[in-house]
Amino acid sequence: MKIALLIISISLIACSTKDKPAVGVSVSIPPLAYLVERIADTTVAVNILVPETTSPETFEPTPRQLKEISQSRIYISIGLIDFERELNKSITKLSDSLQVVDLSDGVGVMAGSCSHADHAGHIHGIDPHTWLSPRLMRGFSQKIAAELCKIFPKNKELYNNNLKTLIGEIDSLDSYIISKKLKSFAIGHPSLTYFARDYGIEQFAIEVEGKEPSATQMREIIDRLKKNNIKVIVYNRRLAPAAAETIARETGTATFDFDPLARDWLINMYRVVDVL
């Protein structure tokens, strides 16, 4: 509701000004900026709503950010994070010429790890981290390129050539992951659900319903990791790392600091693959 009210106020302001929309693209999270920049190169300016250092689960756009979206030609989102869903419901009020691209359309979404109704950040029961699946990002790249070609047709040849290069690099990443024969792993916040599904491995979540585990739950997790011979714990040091670090000490397991929102998506994925 708060976002909807902000959009109404911003749209009224926009209607009362003579500013022309800037040629550009707005995206919800940094990894989507990576795709746009790889495809469009320097032909468009990219505006990112959620900074790398901010959790999308608690994020709310500011009036200034909404105005920046209104001055864009396209707004692209994963479509499964709470603020995205609320924004997508009323974002077209910002500008008649704004093209909204929801990348969740046609995606076979997976259940999230939480089972309680008030979990913040995403649709109840749905895991939103689709961008951490190389195979899904391949499709997202194609969809983004198609939309860019519609809006900026004079750059179609450039976009298609860049898309071909990007798809080749994503396919190389996919082949590399398959060749690594990855093993199951532990993770603080279960953000690699789609990744684990795609490559037939299991992620053992340390969070319990979106929260740090209790002492009893911690012991159960430690026993489970030992039983399954887990060698690495992936976690984000910015997000309540105490449990992951304690479990790592108890089990002698290596840790890896992983930011799901890193802007250089391809390098970020290679980094996490190399430690699994």
Rank of each mutant, 00 (worst) to 15 (best):
I177R: 09
D127S: 13
V36R: 00
A215D: 03
I13P: 00
F59T: 03
I267N: 11
K67R: 10
K154Y: 03
V25H: 01
L5R: 09
L132M: 15
V36T: 05
K227E: 09
Y176V: 02
K183L: 13
I221E: 02
N47R: 08
D127W: 00
G112K: 01
N268S: 15
L66Y: 14
G125C: 03
K180D: 06
A254D: 13
A243M: 03
M110S: 05
P21W: 10
L94D: 06
I48G: 01
Y199C: 12
L192K: 11
G24F: 14
A254S: 14
E60M: 12
Q99N: 12
F59I: 02
D96S: 13
L163Q: 04
I167M: 02
S133H: 10
E209R: 04
R238S: 15
K20I: 05
T58C: 02
I91W: 13
H116F: 12
D274T: 08
V44F: 14
A248Y: 01
P260N: 15
D223R: 13
N155K: 07
L166F: 07
L173C: 06
V50P: 03
P30R: 08
V44M: 07
E207G: 03
I91L: 13
E220H: 09
P153M: 11
V273R: 01
A40P: 07
T62H: 07
V46E: 12
K20G: 00
E68N: 15
I247E: 08
C15Y: 01
W265D: 03
I69D: 08
I233M: 06
I201S: 08
K156S: 13
I81D: 01
G252Y: 00
L266D: 07
F204Q: 00
E86D: 14
D174N: 11
A145V: 13
K156H: 03
V50T: 11
S172N: 08
H189T: 08
E212I: 10
P134M: 11
A215V: 12
I233T: 06
A254Y: 06
K227C: 01
K150M: 07
L163E: 00
A22G: 04
E68L: 15
Y235F: 15
S77M: 10
L239K: 10
N236K: 14
I144G: 07
S70M: 12
I151N: 00
